[in-house]
Design a protein around this nucleic acid. Structure first.
Lengths: 275, 275
DNA sequence: CAGTGGTCTAGACCACACT
DNA sequence: GTGTGGTCTAGACCACTGC
């Protein structure tokens, strides 16, 4: 197993400058050293686990190796692996379950059905009125306008999938969404595929396209709908709506989805917890 | 050093049921025991530190005892205190600074000037256009209407302070806020006091009234302003605005402020990061 | 230099889930 | 019982701050 026994620099290329015990250093003059800054071991381990996650070594929902196994693989103590996984769990990339193990996070089968949707019914009857009814208005392949391309880190004119749909709760159309996805990664996407899938769209992205949304940013405004939007939501053009522009990212902060939502807030509200 | 040497139950009343080694327990029949559930030591330590914070043993901005000192005080290892403080730091109740110590968090002198204000200018010129200009419209003591009272966990008719003000950025009025505060805790509040204080209102609450806002909940809607609101914000009554209802809490989830904001979103947007 | 938070380890034991 | 995550400890050492 372990060939050499050294304290730091276990397998991982260590960038930490080892403070030499002798005052006369081998490198005569290299004093300020603005460079690599120092990265703790557990951060490096976290990076390695992250790489495996990205590479798909373990698929969403699957069990990853136990802390002891990972500790052995990386030649560090279990505590160090633990701290690395702690951070990954805090970022919702993995999920721990005592007695069972650590699982790769997934948008499917998650305790919170819609992780990124903060819209809630005003009435406190919890877990929404069951499922949302989805209606696909449109699903087509187009060339990305400049602004869409910019937000998705593509070039203007690159192919993108564009989807428009309406979500209704207990019969009331409440959300109108326009979704843009990089054409490259989402080649065969069809309206049927979207409507067929039960549960969050993001779960389908994982299963069908191997794309895992890891975090997102939202910009929220109050707007008035145009005639078409108003009609789809069954409101007048003078009804103020919440405009929610969401960019969702995979690993490494790569944007993989742009979603522009119009939310009716007469029966629902956007909820946000501040810490 | 430590007088007695026991593993668990150090000073702190331990609620964990000690699984007796002998199968024949002293208490004949008490099988299901749905009760106390088990609370790890570090959680209890966290609770004790929390109590000291609430009691004002250390004031906002002050240094709390070192991890070693706290460990000695509570008769636990430094690592256990560390984990307790880790959580407190994650909840923004304290702030750690390597080499210096751990400080009680404060809304003043914080790296993020407005911790609970998520409105940002559309242009990316960062840290806002300097300070906001504040204009107090009104500040009076009133009897709480039913709904206000409910949100502040008061009784209808209890005295509350009510403040209305407008925040302007580079000359443009952008935020209209109505603030309600329990009359009990905020007795002598005056318009002068609010306008005089530089920096976040929440920092003033800490200094002048010893009230620390620890977390908050926001409900967001899109609305149209009434005539008075429109005038104060220099917009028409057909301009959609963001309605942000915030309830801010002190320790123990006690609500201490209700704030209803109307945000103009023509030059600004509400930003939210989803994880 | 001493003091503080931050990292790392090794080992013991506890709580939980499965079998 | 075995294996997993979760807790707790004790001690060593590192990085940063300020005297």
């Amino acid at each position: 197993m372990c060939a050499t026994t050294r304290r730091r620099a276990p397998t991982i290329p260590q960038n930490n400058m080892s403070s030499s015990s002798t005052t006369t250093s081998d490198t005569p003059v290299a004093p300020p050293a603005p460079g690599p800054a120092f990265s703790p071991l557990y951060q490096q381990i976290k990076g390695l686990i992250l790489q495996s996650l990205e590479a798909g070594e373990w698929r969403p929902g699957e069990l990853i190796p136990s802390e002891m196994e990972l500790a052995a693989r990386f030649r560090v103590s279990q505590g160090t692996v633990r701290k690395a996984i702690d951070e990954l769990a805090a970022e919702n990339l993995v999920m721990r379950r005592q007695g069972k193990g650590t699982f790769v996070a997934t948008h499917a089968a998650q305790q919170v059905q819609y992780r990124f949707l903060k819209l809630q019914p005003d009435t406190g009857d919890q877990r929404e009125e069951g499922r949302a009814q989805r209606q696909i208005i449109d699903c087509k392949r187009v060339r990305a306008p400049a602004e869409i391309a910019r937000l998705l880190a593509l070039r203007s004119g690159d192919a993108v999938m564009q989807v428009r749909r309406v979500l209704a709760f207990v019969g009331t159309p409440t959300i109108l969404e326009d979704i843009w996805l990089p054409g490259q990664a989402f080649k065969g996407l069809t309206a049927e595929q979207i409507s067929a899938y039960q549960g969050p769209t993001y779960a389908m992205f994982e299963l069908e396209y191997g794309v895992r949304m890891v975090r997102a940013d939202e910009k929220i405004r109050a707007v008035l709908p145009d005639a078409e939007q108003a009609e789809l939501l069954h409101v007048s053009t003078s009804t103020p709506l919440l405009s929610v522009e969401r960019v969702a990212y995979t690993y490494n902060d790569v944007p993989m989805e742009l979603r522009r939502g119009l939310y009716r807030t007469d029966t629902h509200h956007y909820r946000n917890a501040l810490n």
